[in-house]
Amino acid sequence: MFFQYPGNTSKQETANEELEKLALDDEPDTRLGQGTLSFNEVPEVHSQAGAHIRSWAKVQRGTVGEDSAGPVDVTNGEIMRRPVLKFEVVSARTVDHNSEKKHVAYTIMVRKDAIQPDPNPAVIERRYSDFLELYESLRREFPSLMTSVTFPKKVLLGNFAPGVISERSAGFEALLEHIITEDRLRESSCLLSFLQGREQREARQWMEAQRYDQAIPLLENSFRLLNKLHTDRHPSVMLALCRLVACCSTDPVTTSAERFADLALRRYEAVSDADLLQFYVPLLQLCVRLWWSLGRDKRPLEARLEDLKRRGIKVDGCRTLFDALMALDKN
């Protein structure tokens, strides 16, 4: 099934492009500016992924070297550079909480650089055991694709020595760079779990506690990360976007719900994946309520719902988008 609602195509496409830029590029609160890295973690607040992501909002971005800009194309007389996806271990810290065994946590910055540095890199924090689980899972599932990868070995002593940390960081970067060059590895469920599992679990805890303001940065970070790795309408990207929309619309304080809801509606116009379409009606219904609260014209959205109903698609009595996604994540 394929949804398309044509209008004034050129004007609509221009408006959509501006919307996409607004939602994905123009985010001052997530743009890395001047400052120094500071971890201000509060004890016993889940896994602290949210605090860690927030801390990177004040870190100065480095400049992108020529080698990382990628191959050069000449199109219409202009030199264009293809965006290059990069994984970089940018810091490491020793974690010694009473609830966890002492270990080193590595911060990985994920960015997609073109002529200019990515203004909205995503960051995740993982430990050696997380990388090891990813490596071993991929070796079991895709042995022929992993023969060339050398993984840093465990050491009995010296885990916290600078030399060991540096060597492991290089190995982790090499592993991730290899994964994204192979389509089957890039699409693997174990990579998806590695990239968003921790943040998604913590976001769910915050949402169950009705602390939506704490869940939103986690969900937005995951959405941006996956959107660098995959196409705009990839199932994992769309699910991440829907989670973000559902959470933003539930939080009475955030002002991001409208922007991300608009973005989700635009992307759904070209979605045909059956698993994703189950969330389209709840998304439309959410947007009808949101548009009404914002004083926007909700009639085009109501017309879409009527059209779907005429096609025999269940519209009445559906779960909310929030409840549908929470139920999905339980399974």
Score class of each variant (00 low, 15 high):
residue 327 A to L: 10
residue 70 G to P: 01
residue 157 L to V: 10
residue 66 E to R: 11
residue 145 L to T: 06
residue 86 K to C: 06
residue 167 E to P: 05
residue 47 S to L: 07
residue 190 C to N: 12
residue 229 L to S: 00
residue 21 K to T: 15
residue 28 P to V: 07
residue 61 R to L: 11
residue 46 H to C: 09
residue 248 C to W: 01
residue 113 D to T: 08
residue 37 L to T: 07
residue 92 A to K: 12
residue 255 T to H: 15
residue 33 G to F: 03
residue 42 V to Q: 10
residue 162 P to C: 04
residue 135 Y to H: 10
residue 31 R to E: 10
residue 127 R to I: 02
residue 73 D to F: 12
residue 77 G to L: 07
residue 120 N to L: 08
residue 48 Q to C: 13
residue 92 A to S: 09
residue 306 E to R: 11
residue 284 L to I: 09
residue 76 N to A: 10
residue 241 L to M: 04
residue 256 S to N: 13
residue 232 D to F: 14
residue 13 E to R: 14
residue 313 I to L: 07
residue 192 L to P: 01
residue 143 P to V: 04
residue 67 D to G: 14
residue 244 L to C: 02
residue 158 G to K: 04
residue 172 F to M: 06
residue 201 R to Y: 08
residue 38 S to N: 15
residue 79 I to L: 13
residue 125 E to P: 02
residue 150 T to K: 09
residue 284 L to S: 02
residue 144 S to I: 05
residue 313 I to T: 10
residue 136 E to I: 06
residue 298 K to S: 15
residue 259 R to L: 15
residue 169 S to R: 03
residue 32 L to H: 03
residue 127 R to S: 04
residue 220 E to H: 09
residue 88 E to F: 05
residue 190 C to M: 08
residue 170 A to G: 11
residue 304 R to W: 02
residue 85 L to F: 00
residue 128 Y to G: 00
residue 197 G to P: 02
residue 263 L to F: 10
residue 245 V to H: 00
residue 280 Y to K: 07
residue 326 M to G: 06
residue 158 G to I: 13
residue 79 I to N: 10
residue 189 S to D: 11
residue 116 Q to P: 03
residue 151 F to A: 03
residue 130 D to Q: 04
residue 273 D to I: 09
residue 310 R to S: 15
residue 42 V to G: 04
